[in-house]
């Protein structure tokens, strides 16, 4: 119960702040569009790079939009109140991640076809990217949340969050791209890569919230 209350509070706060939730989306579109400039106007070449660009853009958007995820809660003493209360900090972290997924990742997923069209992506590949992002993006958010919790108290920057979180997302990125490739061929739905991708998300679900909660606890000690 408390979990959903925390989710609702975060959602309400993010939406009320206005604009903040759109940063990840804008960043995602920007990276995608600028990759097009970098590769050049040859549509065939862009098509070959479309899936990796979408994945990298999503990965960076998730990491860089999370740098202030816990900073305000640590400064305002919200974390302390929750640590003293009946619900655990792990729950709090999980609620934050759900809120981030709804506010930032869902719009990003919705914009993926749009960016895909710009990048001349093949329909089957686009489907693969959306499916793999659906499976893998929670891991990106969770590791980003851990990076954000670790650096919440310091004079940290978004770059530090990315530096802490990105190495942890390497398996997710690798299996995400392999999953896209698997889904391009018929019968790809049963490919082991998709199961491995799901496994990286589940590992992140198990490890990241307690670790982030321990980090938040250290921030208020």
């Amino acid at each position: 119960m408390a979990f959903w209350a925390m989710c609702r509070r975060d959602l309400a706060l993010t939406l009320r702040e206005g604009g903040g939730w759109a940063n990840a989306l804008v960043f995602f579109l920007l990276v995608g569009a600028f990759s097009g400039f970098a590769i050049g106007p040859d549509l065939e070449r862009i098509r070959a790079f479309a899936a990796p660009i979408l994945w990298i853009a999503a990965l960076l958007a998730c990491q860089l939009s999370l740098d202030r995820l816990f900073a305000a809660d640590v400064e305002q003493g919200i974390v302390e109140i929750i640590a003293l209360g009946p619900s655990s900090l792990t729950q709090f972290v999980a609620a934050k991640c759900v809120a981030v997924w709804v506010c930032a990742v869902a719009p990003l997923l919705a914009a993926t076809p749009l960016l895909g069209v710009i990048l001349n992506i093949a329909p089957q590949t686009l489907l693969g990217v959306v499916v793999t992002l659906l499976i893998g993006a929670p891991a990106l958010v969770l590791w980003g949340a851990l990076g954000s919790a670790l650096s919440a108290g310091g004079k940290a920057s978004g770059v530090l969050v990315a530096l802490l979180a990105t190495p942890l997302t390497a398996p997710t990125l690798i299996f995400g791209i392999l999953g896209v490739r698997a889904l391009e061929s018929p019968g790809g739905w049963t490919a082991p890569e998709l199961r491995y991708l799901l496994a990286t998300t589940l590992i992140a679900c198990v490890l990241a919230p307690p670790a982030a909660a321990a980090a938040l606890k250290a921030q208020i000690d």
Binding site: P167, L168, A208, A211, A215, Q219
Partner: peptide, 13 residues
Amino acid sequence: RLVAIAAMVGWIN
């Protein structure tokens, strides 16, 4: 404490 957490999580990965 924070570095210890980061070190352990990194090692598992």
